[in-house]
Amino acid sequence: MKTCIRILIVSSAVAVASLTAGPSAAKSRHAPLLPAYVEECGSCHIAFPGRMLDAASWIAVLEGLEQHFGVDASVDAKTLEPIRAYLAGTARSKPTTAGGVPLLRITETRWFRHEHDEVPQRLWQEPDAVKPADCAACHRSAATGSYSEHDLRLPKKGEAK
């Protein structure tokens, strides 16, 4: 009986692991996105990978979910726990702070501005501009957590929403 239970536990763990890994995990060098994180945080915006902010920034974000950039993004405590662990475990090691204060907006971080300094200004400024939080407008595989330059395509004029 004990063996039975052990087999059950092991096989469920394998099933969960294979579900979590997803088809693109093999070719990505980054940790796969946690499904619970995608479910809770990826409905209103792309599920930004943990590596985009440092741990202090993520903690600040999670502590303010009731007023998250003007909207209620609250998550119940039980659901939040694995998300907190996922973000802490995959957080950026270099700080994402300004004057010692954790930044909450990825677009304000030094690394983001550096990575995007060659993006034509028209993309951000025209009436039909790309919304800065809409990574997938250019990073076509962003939904899977991949931001490889192979999948990068800037929208043509008038194409962005």
């Binding site: 409905s43 209103c44 792309i46 950039f69 909207v71 919304k131 939080a133 809409d134 407008a137 929403k161």
Partner: peptide, 10 residues
Amino acid sequence: GEHVVTGKRI
């Protein structure tokens, strides 16, 4: 639909 701030598909 589309999120009014982020542009995410709903």
